[in-house]
Write a protein that binds this DNA or RNA. Sequence first.
DNA 1: TCTGGGGTCCTAGGACCC
DNA 2: TCTGGGGTCCTAGGACCC
Length: 441
Amino acid sequence: MTNVADTTPRATNVHQPLFALVDVNNFYVSCERVFNPRLEQVPVVVLSNNDGCAVARSNEVKALGVKMGAPWFKLKDLEKKHGIVALSSNYTLYGDMSNRVVSVMRDLAPDIEVYSIDESFIRIERTAHLYGGTVPMGHIIRNRVRQWTGLPVCVGIGETKTLAKFANHIAKKNNEFNGVCDVAAMSLDERNQWMRRIDVGEVWGIGRRISERLIKLKIQSVHDLVSADIKRLRAHFGVVMERTVSELRGVSCLALEDVAPSKQQIMSSRSFGTMMHTIELIGEAVAWHVHAAAEKLRAQHSVAGAIYVFIQTNRFRDSDPQYNGGMVVPLADVSDDTRALTTAALHGLRRIFRDGYAYKKCGVMLIELQDKRIRQETLFDDPQARARSARVMLALDAVNRVWGRGTLRTAASGITQRWAMRSENRSPRYTTHWRELPVVR
DNA sequence: TCTGGGGTCCTAGGACCC
DNA sequence: TCTGGGGTCCTAGGACCC
């Protein structure tokens, strides 16, 4: 056994990396509350696409024992009993609010990695002294985000990303921290006490499966994990686990990724609002997904070498006959042209579609992505055709940027969109659509 | 009736080669 | 009953994240 007290380096050196993790509390719910204060103090959930599952819960809802991802239709009793307000998700609003939070933080500390829609890592070892130290800096970030966007955030600080995550967890669950916790500033005794109190499953990178296996090995708390034999853990669980434990011991293995790497695959898929039976309607949905995915593809200046298309029946209905179909359709030449991708996807769909099933979901994935600017010339290259295609796509994207995705799209994606998802209680897109701006009386 | 969507990384095992 | 050793590449599947 290695004792953590012997191996954890201290933050005495000014050049030692120091990470802050800033995350918005109950992000989607908090966004809704900014524009509708009546939702304060009320139990609120935000539902996934198709109004399926609870993907964000206010503290009041968490206190009722509602789990992340719980199917909404199973919560109807709780809804009646406690007056839970359920909102459809409004990603346009959340995406815009997320950008605002990032721009406030970037102002205060430029070394920032936007990790997800509601979380960012910041390197602070060179900037903290400007704000009077790490914890004061955390409070300044917290207060300014609150004041300028209306959103509540917590800040966790540590010598590694995993420790910053750990500190953030402490800040969120313990009010005495006032939303900012720096584990790098703690004494070893104090840090170990927190590690003894917190379950190993809370560690970033330790999910349900791994934590079950760890508990069988009598590793239950974060402290148990950090004190365990790292070679043995590596043999049992692989290199990812080794990295996690090193990070918890204060050895930084995960760097700040301040420039987002381009995606290696781009997916678009949705459940249908109701079951679909015909290839015509499903084809419209597939074409729509190609439209959405290709837009993202061009935004990151990539081209795809192939497209994967898939259709699925409802896996939750045991009584229904089940069928999952999917196939990869290679493209003759790499492309970012919505029309070429649509042709390929619909070709694939015709191959995988089977009559007589009730389909619930379809989607496409663009794969074998390459940087457009370093693309290979091929034998049958037609530079003129390629230039034409580029101009059409440029115009398509320009129109949709101004007027909204789907304003201009392929005819294949249909007019009526009968496959569209349910979204019965979506709030207005307060910050991005003129007609939906909030009105102050 | 009603059960999300979009990603990444790692590992094991098979195919194939010399 | 015997049936090398070492390497690469690819894919499927499992685990994780939000």
